[in-house]
Design a binder for these strands. Structure first.
Lengths: 213, 213, 213, 213
DNA sequence: AATGAATGAGAGTTCATTCAT
DNA sequence: GATGAATGAACTCTCATTCAT
């Protein structure tokens, strides 16, 4: 019936389903049904269920991330480089928003998958491009939050009336702001000492109450 | 063997397993096995598998969040109130770190559970306490990132050598910084106009390159 | 319905089926159907399909063989001991004729099963009780044929009109005769020299024709 | 790549696999993979999986056996004829050792195959050439053991350091010895009476102990 | 002389759940 | 306060086979 595009169609439908219902709740039977083929057909194109998710993640997330890392390795570790990393990461995420949402919401499942390890290491490598090994804790937090912000925003702002391009820009802006702050901290103070506790108008995290249970 | 604390032990072991392996991958058989009881015993204490997770989430996350919301509703919508909300939320999270990690990594599974809806609405209510309905997009992002930062940090910084209390403080600091910024933006400009695009030394999110594939 | 005998019934029906149709051709569905239970019930009593076969072989073949070996180890390596080994082995085989038939006809399947290894080593240990490490080839053959004869006879003579007890006695007789011959050879000659080529009226294996294709 | 010999190569690889893994455990996918062709290619050369095994057995076992039978039918039923039958059978077996091993280890699978019936009847015909319809039971046993010995020996002696030709000769020798004995018994006694219970130094199968559990 | 794409049937296995005791 | 025994539904995966090209 349809020509050689079945493989692609499987990936599309599978990703849709994985993102909507979660990885474990999405059965191959359902995917096949929605495609109008038999389960066995899926197995003609992919060796296992995991293989399907691998092929998707690899193309839409792992490779793009690897490309960013590869590019960044040949750049000086300047602030501008870091901001460009964020820009590119933002581009990659928005290019495969459904997939990144899936990965974020299915981290537990991803952890059991081989590709999960791969992605984790990619993300940590990106993180290492942004942060200083021995920066103050708060700066480390800023850098991971920057990354998180970029891929979580499409989801957290999903009910807000704005184009996804606008949301992406907003997320990128905040992420860059966080990384910029961390970078400047790294240049100002020399050791763990002066860093961390915010200056520049940010109120100290005065812990007064805190109980919540 | 053990006294009438079986119910509690089930919750403990279940949470451990859910957090470690994911909700769907944790079978009642395994939980029972690790407890040294039979599956049927679980059913004496809980009506369903979902019931177990509900009971845990309810005690350790839903109620604490509800308490924060209840408290905040009687407070003025000042910056100080917002910071206190973060403080309390940080306290709640650190009090049930494994559970929050579980919820974050199993969002897909949570979505299918009744308690998932509940938690989602709690989080969104908290968010609404922090942000202005019609604030600039970037400020909305800042507020959700603040929340995210608080419950994601234990995980993202898990390989860093620092006590979890230190990490918590760092996360709280960054979260408060983000909310403070958003709050000040809200007071400065009146409408969507002047807001958003960062001033105060943050570089404009100049999108130059961006390709990543 | 039926009391605690389900486990036993599963073993019975399974063995019947395995022997009749072969291991791989016997599906758990069929076994369950014939028992009037569901497949899942089988899994309550046995961890896997292999587990069923293991439990049967272990009780009816492995343990009896081990017992023979254990007994023989404390006996002098005389002819009489060897003949007694055969006698006991014959008893074990006739006690679980269907199982031995199954094992013989499903050696390929057995080889993939963990219990297959176990049984193989039992048989080889028995063989080592009968034969001399460095006996002439023909005597080694006699000893293995003796063992083979005992468990193959119920099958090869199955269409002959005689009680199985009569057949068993006949098989045992031939087996003992073979082992006796091998034993006497071992005592007569000292090295590979004089042994092997039969005396006592047996015609030399004069190879004249031999082509068959 | 290879010339028009694909059909032959399929048979070779298939036999190898069947012998190594068993008939049911050998899938056409694996066979095709090892050959570097697709499953469909197998179907160009053979109608079914069974067809492959049939073609192999037919050439390497059924026809040679039939030839032996055909030859023997025109011979007098003397001892010398019987010994020659064994000689020829031994030749056939050693010429297709892997196949005979396969058939022996996969009797359960063979039974379901049409060629299984064929082979069974060949073997029984051969048996009938060796034994007397109404010989004593023990003599019947001797004759079937003779046949068994010939095709089982390559396997039972597989760990012994000797050439396969040496093993074959040893097996043949024992087989001939067994048949000779049976033949002589047949001539001595006239009816069931005097036969069976061994004379010539073989100890009577005195059943004393026999317990094995 | 062979492939690419697919199918239908069925395999073994696991799951949450039930209920009489 | 639990267990032993079982179920029904679903799962992932594999198989031999087909057929248009």
């Amino acid at each position: 019936m349809s020509r050689g595009n079945t493989r692609q169609r499987i990936q599309d439908v599978a990703l849709e389903m994985f993102a909507e219902r979660g990885y474990e709740k999405s059965s191959l039977r359902e995917i096949a049904e929605q495609l109008g083929v038999t389960k066995a057909a899926l197995y003609y194109h992919f060796k296992t269920k995991e293989d399907i998710v691998i092929s998707i993640v690899d193309d839409l997330a792992a490779k793009p991330c690897a490309a960013i890392v590869a590019w960044a390795e040949h750049q000086p570790r300047t602030l501008e480089t870091k901001l460009e990393v964020l820009r590119r990461y933002s581009g990659a995420v928005s290019h495969a928003a459904r997939l990144f949402r899936f990965m974020q919401e299915n981290q537990a499942a991803m952890r059991e998958l081989s590709i999960g390890e791969t992605m984790k290491s990619h993300i940590f490598t990106l993180l290492d491009l942004l942060r200083d090994e021995d920066a103050a804790l708060a700066d480390q937090v800023r850098c991971s939050s920057a990354l998180f912000t970029i891929h979580a925003t499409p989801y957290t702002l999903r009910e807000i009336g704005a184009t996804s391009e606008e949301k992406r820009k907003a997320a990128l802006e905040v992420a860059q702001e966080l990384v910029t702050r961390a970078h400047q901290d790294g240049e100002a103070g020399t050791t763990e000492t002066a860093k961390g506790a915010g200056t520049r108008g940010t109120p100290k995290a005065a812990e007064t109450t805190g109980s919540a249970a």
